[in-house]
Design a binder for these strands. Structure first.
Length: 935
DNA sequence: TTAGGGTTAG
């Protein structure tokens, strides 16, 4: 019997499948359970070099000596040394040498399994697969090694495919196979396959195996079947730490943190995984203080514990704290860096993300597929094509150039950056494509407006998943083609919450709120996106109260609002002037840590400005660290609405100095400010500069603003000429601006001309009728007023009723013209009566011309008009304490009579009255209005 | 077999 080489470990001859091919008895003799070539005399020199890990020299000896009596055992040991040293390239050289010398043992299953093990351990799945595919015969170990490798390296799909193939070829899976395949099912949420495996386990009598059953518990928990997991867990006759941790993790990841904590406390011997599971659970659910408390409390921490807490802060956008912990941690691995990079990337800080990637490389940590796959979407999001291309280059230089996840992320990045050509190029070159790659291409073509190509790819793709179908629904729903979207929705084999949300959002965005609500009510489960879609749908379609009501219900149902919720609800507050509610929401935003979100902060600025509190708006605006054009525009528009043209224009200059380029909205705000201040020359200057210096081509709204600017200032003829000279066909809004000014400047000729034009352009539009009627009324031409009213009646055109809102104690009260539905109606009308007496006593006699005058479209009583804002003001006077300001919002413009009356009321009751009409703010104080009677 | 980091759809 030959002497054995000194074996470092007992499992030196393990072929890597979990079952050792050779075992050693107590005398150092070998027992074989695998087909093994016989062991001959070892070459001592070679062995020594090999055990010392001196692979280069070993290889040199082998290459230069052909007749060295080296047996298969030595080669095996060489390969194992490569495995231990992670020496892929040396391993490959030995492999090729063995192949070339055509050793008989090289074709043996055991030896080939070792080769698979070599490649798997050295991270080259492609080479492992090549060996696997070339094997004349495979045993359970071969399959197990390959399956385990796929699942561990993040290819659970491939593991499952191989698992089915294994069974087809008649090889029986064993406990090792199951212990690998169950986590693969868990990873991709393959509950059905997991349940099949459960059946096989029962059949194979493996239900007492604690390892396998723990994996089964984990699978059920991860696939969302938490009850099934618990049932199994409770039935286990023996549980180890893994079983407990799997169960705890199941509850934690399903958001059932209380139950997770109960089990955690009940668990006999908690280990570092148990603690880390709880920390991760709290962190992922946004309960960062609890996560940190446990992190500080835990007896021992490892790199995973640190990573969990850091990722928690990073994912929740608390990046400074994440960075502090990252810098503090004793050692970092690739996942630590990835957590930071993903945190920056997901929160929109592309520069920070790429900077961290560079630091990581400097620190000698190689990026992996996760690094690339998390940084690319950040480039995609902000359309940073150049940075995306740089990362593409790094990927090509790395070993992840053929990783399917990285490839898909690349496709998506190019598609979102608008470069479909590059996306297609990457897609074509991919050695393996999955559903994600196809879906990214489909969405890319759709987002870039090439719908037929998207549809073609959808039809062509080999396996469509729920995302593919959802993409198609979204494409058509967003375009307003809701019947087509519904077609996909009905045809798809399985729907999830996203499918329902896509339909619901489609209806909501297109103003079909009844259908949106039906989907919302019928859907099997609702998440934060469903609620957001409903809220935004209501808010965008002028149903602010419904939006607010839905927001309340959402909170009652236990769904936590996110930044999209706030960005959706704030415009509703803004529209209704619900300042107190808006302030409550501001508080919630701070509590949820979302104040640093620039979209949310800009919506807050807008809300405060539109609710009349320009100071609060400015305070929020001042604190925005990364202002974008939207934030600046909200603030500029705020000043413009409040008639502070100086501030508006000053801010516009500041914006340019700060390096934020004005966009077309910025110019609209500036033109609006000029127009409301009668600054004709300045307005013209800005209008010309916009295309000249900023290459922003005027769109219809800009033209309308210019017509407003000119005609408001009395330059009606110039405005008309301006319209005629427009390079695009003037839309209704443009003519409406001109007509509005015809009323205030009493120009009947242009007024009639414009009205006639508008009757043809937009026969259903009520506004021109009302304006024309008002022009006649101003001039005392009552016969003509009657004619217009008759014409409206004949054509069945109805006025939009004037409505005003006032918020008292966080409740918004609505008053329509002549409204008598409010519980306090009697008091309100009595108050108005009282006020009119006081006005009379103060010498105010309403001019019959003004009483009949109707800026847009309200009915009224002859002497004292009951326009909606008057009702709201009276209500405010009754229900607020003396001295406080009264804030009212109106959907139409304030009429002359009400404007005059409100000035007087403000003096009589010594109150500040703030009225926001369809156009701007009026601050009434001591008988004066901030608009200077120019509105 | 359990804990941390990733790609597509709303």
């Amino acid at each position: 019997m030959a002497t054995l080489p000194r074996l470092k470990t007992k499992r030196v001859f393990d072929c890597g499948c979990g079952r050792s091919g050779i075992t050693m008895n107590n005398n150092g003799h070998l027992n074989y359970n695998h087909t093994m070539p016989p062991i001959s005399h070892l070459h001592l020199n070679l062995t020594a070099l090999c055990t010392e890990g001196r692979l280069k020299e070993s290889l040199q000896i082998l290459l230069t000596t052909h007749n060295l009596p080296v047996d298969s055992n030595t080669y095996l040991q060489l390969l194992h040394t490569c495995i231990a040293n992670n020496a892929l390239s040396q391993g490959k050289k030995f492999h090729s040498l063995i192949t070339h010398r055509r050793f008989e043992f090289a074709t043996h299953t055991f030896f080939q399994n070792t080769l698979i093990n070599l490649y798997v351990k050295c991270g080259s799945l492609v080479d492992a697969r090549k060996v696997f595919d070339g094997m004349p015969e495979r045993d359970g170990c071969s399959w197990n090694a390959m399956i385990a490798a796929y699942r561990r390296d993040g290819y659970p799909q491939n593991a499952l495919i191989l698992f089915h193939e294994m069974q087809r070829t008649g090889v029986q899976p064993d406990e090792f196979t199951f212990a690998s395949i169950l986590p693969a099912c868990a990873k991709i949420g393959a509950l059905d396959q997991g349940m099949d495996i459960h059946k096989s386990l029962i059949k194979n009598g493996l239900m007492l195996n604690v390892v396998v059953v723990s994996a089964l518990v984990d699978m059920y928990a991860k696939c969302g079947s938490i009850r099934k997991a618990r049932e199994l867990f409770d039935k286990m006759s023996q549980r180890d730490a893994v079983s407990w941790n799997a169960m705890i993790g199941g509850y934690a990841q399903n958001g059932a943190l209380d139950e997770a904590l109960r089990l955690f406390k009940e668990m006999p011997r908690r280990n570092v995984v148990s603690w880390t599971t709880m920390i991760a659970g709290y962190a992922q659910n946004g309960v960062l203080d609890e996560a940190l408390r446990l992190f500080k409390e835990m007896p021992q921490r490892n790199v995973v514990s640190w990573n969990a807490i850091i990722a928690g802060y990073a994912q929740n956008g608390v990046l400074d704290e994440a960075l502090r912990l990252f810098e503090e941690m004793p050692q970092r691995n690739v996942a630590s860096w990835n957590a930071m990079i993903a945190g920056y990337a997901q929160n929109g800080f592309v520069e920070k993300a790429t900077e961290t990637l560079k630091q990581m490389q400097v620190a000698g940590v190689m990026p992996n597929s996760t690094t690339f796959a998390s940084i690319l979407p950040a480039c995609a999001k902000v359309r940073a094509l150049q940075q995306g291309m740089d990362i593409h280059q790094s990927i090509m230089d790395s070993e992840f150039s053929s990783d399917v996840v990285v490839g898909s992320a690349l496709v998506d990045m190019y598609a979102k950056c608008g470069s479909m050509q590059k996306a297609q190029e990457v897609f074509d070159k991919m050695s393996q494509r999955d559903e994600v790659s196809w879906n990214a291409m489909i969405a890319g073509y759709a987002q870039n407006g090439v719908l037929n190509e998207a549809l073609r790819l959808f039809k062509e793709m080999p396996r469509r998943d729920v995302v593919s179908w959802n993409t198609m629904i979204a494409i058509y729903a967003q375009k307003g083609a809701l019947n087509e979207a519904l077609g996909f929705f009905k045809e798809m084999p399985q729907r999830n919450v996203v499918s329902w949300n896509a339909m619901l959002a489609g209806y909501a965005q297109n103003g079909i709120l009844v259908k949106a609500l039906r989907f919302f009510e019928e859907m099997p489960q609702r998440d934060v996106v469903s609620w957001n879609a409903m809220i935004a749908g209501y808010a965008q379609n002028g149903l602010g109260e419904k939006a607010l009501e839905t927001f309340k219900q959402m909170k009652l149902s236990g769904i936590k609002p996110n930044s999209t919720t706030f960005a959706g609800i704030l415009p509703a507050c803004a529209k209704m002037g619900a300042l107190e509610l808006g302030m409550d929401i501001h508080q919630s935003i701070i509590e949820r840590g979302l104040i640093s979100d620039v979209v949310v902060a800009s919506a807050l600025v807008d809300m405060y400005a539109k609710c009349g509190s320009i100071q609060k708006a400015h305070r929020v605006f001042d604190k925005i660290s990364q202002r974008d054009a939207v934030s600046w525009n909200a603030m500029i528009a705020g000043y413009a609405m409040h008639g502070s043209r100086k501030d508006a224009l000053r801010l516009f200059e500041l914006m340019k100095d700060s390096g934020t380029n004005p966009d077309h909205v910025s110019f609209l705000c500036v033109l609006f400010a000029c127009s409301h201040a009668g600054l004709v020359d300045e307005g013209c200057k800005y209008f010309n500069g916009m295309s000249g210096s900023y290459s922003i081509m005027p769109v219809m709204d800009h033209y309308a603003c210019m017509v407003d600017l000119l005609s408001r200032a009395g330059y009606l003829l110039e405005a008309l000429i301006f319209i005629i000279k427009m390079t695009i066909k003037p839309a209704v809004i443009v003519w409406m601006c001109l007509l509005g000014a015809c009323r205030s400047h009493k120009n009947i000729e242009i007024g009639v001309f414009t009205t006639t034009l508008l009757f043809e352009l937009d026969p259903k539009n009520v506004a021109p009728y009302v304006l024309l009627s008002n022009i006649y009324a101003e001039m005392g031409r009552w016969g003509d007023v009657q004619k217009v009213r008759r014409l409206m009646k004949d054509k069945g055109i109805k006025k939009i009723p004037g409505c005003s809102w006032i918020e008292v104690n966080k409740i918004v009260h609505v008053f329509c013209v002549g409204d008598r539905s409010h519980p306090q109606t009697q008091e309100v009308y009595a108050k108005l009566e009282e006020l009119s007496e006081e006005m009379r006593a103060a010498g105010y006699s309403p001019d019959s011309k003004h009483v009949l005058n109707d800026v847009e479209e309200e009915e009224k009583e002859l002497f004292l008009c009951h326009h909606s804002e008057k009702l709201a003001i009276a209500f405010g006077l009754l229900n607020t304490s003396p001295g406080t300001a009264i804030r009212v919002v109106k959907n139409l413009r304030v009429c002359v009579a009400c404007h005059t009356a409100t000035k007087l009321i403000s003096k009589i009751v010594a109150r500040e009255i703030v009225v926001r009409d369809a156009n701007r703010f009026h601050h009434f104080e001591q008988g004066q209005c901030s608009c200077g009677d120019y509105w």
